[in-house]
Design a protein around this nucleic acid. Structure first.
Length: 711
DNA sequence: TGTGCATTGTG
DNA sequence: ACAATGCAC
């Protein structure tokens, strides 16, 4: 067997043995070398946060032991360049094939494309598969063959495709290890030993070091261990646990999903998102199992059950759509899909930002959510909407700051989903929310947490406040506050911004935004400029510093055993990496509590670069010729110059200070990342916009429906 | 089997 | 904020 085909199965965010097409292909082809490469520097700013790394660590261990019991082991590699690591493994194993499953985030699209090119050039046959989606993004198009821009149309199409999603594959019964022939024998031996707990030869667990050794991967540092220890009480990473979670959900809470979905505080969601993020369970399996229930309940005439299924499937659909958008608009994690928002004068206020992170905004529902997020890495979807919409609409902070904080703190942090979520909230999707609409956290509070239990759980300082006032303590009579032991402004803050003030400020900002947009458009039409750039939008990005959180002000304890959570845990670990050290030092010298209204200026003269032809992003997984006008134009994330910062053009990391001392976000991509790839592609078209058109029905200026009725 | 007000959902 | 739906009469 050993002399025959040996293939590498490259695991990434598909950490499962069941319904894993790449693994199945490897097993079918002969001997398998299973590999995981840990190269977080490739992700640039999106270095995974603490809790996400914790999950990954356990998920990998779980996968490794599954693979061992099937007859092989998981080779782990620490690397700064996945592709060269793969190449090394090819050389040391003599593998002739590489199999992996598709990912759709912009960094992976480019990296995987390169992997395909490089390995093919070395004579390796490379094949990749769909394991993450019901349908590949390029298979879902409208009647004209164009990609959808709105979710509902997209999802409608998905549900009425002429063919069903592939049926899930069973796990392999046995895997032939791709080491030299002795190894397969050795592994058989090991798996026997592993099944007998009294014989635990630690050394034998490793794969043969002379052929291909595994690196020990480090996913947490000492300071993170204590905080991470608590996570294991609530979560069990790993594909078979994911499978259990799925079964539990489908046979239990699913039928009530519709009824319970507005409760912030109950265990009625599927809790599948972190499992799905790491591919521990396949969406196709989820879909199939849910479909079975759907048929069952439809036959029984169970309306609530049917509604629940539709709603749950819709959230699966949103996950699909996030990949779809990311694929079709590779910059959707850093620039708004509707162009007008790039002219929005964001409030660059680190004090606001800090208050939001700490759960000290003075709005109980928002604060409870932010405390929960910090303590657990988890937030109910509804509460995510509440806190993020507060962030964007009331505080008017740049949405990408919030997105980055979510990325750093969420257990299920997922670039595509989070980008979709924040764009939706920010009103930058063609069918997103009205930007001008502010949701009042007080009313939302009574909607999602009618008895205040959620607030009391996470804000113990409000625990004794009666329900009548729990979502608006600032209105409570002094006597009530006193009885509850609350002194506003002292042990619980007054609202950081009043809702009425926020509405006024938002209106004003929106009119500034449209003005700027008009100016820009006129400039483009006159041909005097190539177009204006974004302010904090497509402009390079950095997170505000403020990482060494000075305070020893411990937030009030909740009743959970949270005493070992240290305050720094709430901070943003990935920003302390050397990647952005320079930014912090420069910017922190200027840190101050900003004034009420420090807004970013809209920079002028930002270079407009071309978006690559889509094919170049598809890492060869799509064969359809795209010779038409699918090119769009994009600002590149790297080296954007503008009038005030032209010297930053060639540097990979820089920041720009605003007149008020706020720091405009600056993107510093990892060297040699995808931006180069994009620059190389000159297939762009003139100056047409890369932004999506706004969907008419979501725009209040013209009411199409009414027009057609009167006509 | 209409009109008016409340409730609900909005990706 | 608004449209669509649900219910009282």
């Amino acid at each position: 067997m050993s002399g025959s085909a040996c293939s590498i199965v490259w695991f990434r965010r598909d950490l499962r043995v069941e319904d894993n097409p790449a693994l199945a292909a490897g097993v079918r082809a002969g001997a398998v070398v299973a590999v995981f490469v840990w190269a977080p520097e490739e992700e640039g700013h999106y270095y995974p946060g603490r809790v996400s790394r914790w999950w990954l660590k356990h998920s990998l261990a779980h996968l490794g032991s599954s693979l061992r019991s099937l007859g092989t082991c998981l080779i782990t590699k620490r690397s700064s360049d996945s592709v060269s690591s793969l190449l090394e493994i090819v050389k040391s194993t003599g593998a002739t094939q590489l199999f992996f499953n598709h990912l759709y985030d912009p960094i992976s699209l480019v990296r995987d494309h390169r992997a395909k090119e490089v390995l093919t050039a070395h004579g390796v046959a490379v094949r990749s598969f769909n394991a993450d989606l019901l349908y590949e993004p390029w298979d879902v198009n409208d009647a004209q063959g164009r990609p959808f821009t709105t979710f509902s149309a997209f999802w409608e199409r998905c549900l009425s495709m002429p063919y069903d999603p592939e049926a899930p594959l069973l796990p392999p019964k046995r895997i032939i290890s791709g080491w030299f022939s002795l190894n397969s024998v050795l592994h058989l031996l090991i798996s026997i030993i592993n099944h007998c707990p009294s014989l635990n030869f630690v050394g034998l667990q490793q794969c043969d070091a002379t052929t291909c050794h595994s690196d020990e991967l480090v996913f947490e540092d000492e300071s993170e261990k204590g905080s991470n220890a608590l996570l294991a009480r609530a979560w069990s990473p790993g594909w078979s646990n994911a499978d259990k979670a799925l079964t539990t959900f489908i046979n239990g809470p699913l039928i009530e999903y519709s009824k319970n979905r507005r409760k912030a505080d109950s265990a009625t969601t599927s809790f599948l998102s972190p499992h799905l993020h790491f591919g521990e369970v396949s969406v196709r399996k989820v879909f199939h199992l849910v479909r079975i229930k759907q048929v069952l309940w439809a036959n029984e005439g169970n309306k609530a059950g049917e509604e629940s299924v539709n709603l749950f499937l819709k959230s699966i659909g949103l996950r699909e759509f996030s990949r779809y958008l990311s694929f079709n608009h590779p910059y959707s994690h850093e620039r708004p899909l509707l162009g007008h928002l790039k002219f929005f004068p964001w409030v660059v206020d680190e004090g606001y930002f800090k208050a939001w992170r700490q759960g000290r905004t003075g709005y109980p529902l928002v604060d409870a959510g932010m405390r929960e997020l910090w303590a657990t890495g988890w937030l109910h979807d509804r509460i995510r909407v509440v806190v993020s919409s507060f962030f964007v609409k009331v505080l008017q902070l740049p949405w990408r700051w919030g997105m980055k904080y979510f990325w750093d703190t969420l257990l299920d942090a997922d670039l595509e989903s989070d980008a979709l979520g924040w764009q939706y909230i920010s009103g930058t999707l063609p069918d997103g929310r009205e930007f001008e609409r502010i949701d009042n956290p007080q009313f939302e509070g009574y909607k999602f947490d009618p008895h205040g239990e959620y607030v009391r759980r996470w804000l113990p300082e409000l625990a004794r406040l009666p329900t009548d006032w729990i979502h608006h303590p600032w209105n409570a009579p002094e006597s009530v506050l006193q009885a509850a032991g609350i002194e506003l402004g002292s042990n619980y803050p007054l609202p950081i911004v009043g809702i009425d003030a926020a509405k006024d400020r938002l209106q004003e900002a929106v009119s500034v935004m449209w003005q700027q947009e008009a100016v820009s458009r006129a400039a483009i039409e006159n041909g005097t400029e190539e177009g204006l750039g974004d302010s904090s939008e497509s402009a390079p990005f950095s997170f505000p510093q403020d990482i060494q959180m000075e305070e020893n002000v411990e937030p009030a304890r909740n009743d959970a055993p949270a005493t070992t959570w240290r305050y720094e845990d709430q901070m943003v670990p990935s920003m302390t990496t050397t990647l952005v050290r320079g930014i912090h030092e420069e910017a922190s010298s200027d840190l101050r509590t900003s004034t009420e209204d420090s807004r970013a200026e809209v920079p002028r003269n930002v270079n407009i670069h071309q978006e690559p032809q889509r094919d170049s992003l598809n890492h060869g997984i799509q064969q359809t010729a795209r010779n038409n006008n699918t090119f769009r134009q994009f600002n590149l994330p790297m080296g954007l110059g503008n009038a005030e910062d032209s010297t930053a053009d060639s540097s990979t990391s820089s920041s720009r200070r605003e007149r008020d001392g706020g720091v405009v976000p600056v993107w510093s991509p990892p060297a040699s990342s995808y931006s180069e790839q994009f620059i190389g592609d000159e297939n762009g078209i003139g100056t047409s916009s890369s932004y999506l058109p706004r969907h008419p029905q979501s725009h209040q200026i013209v009411n199409w429906r009414r027009l057609s009725q009167t006509g």
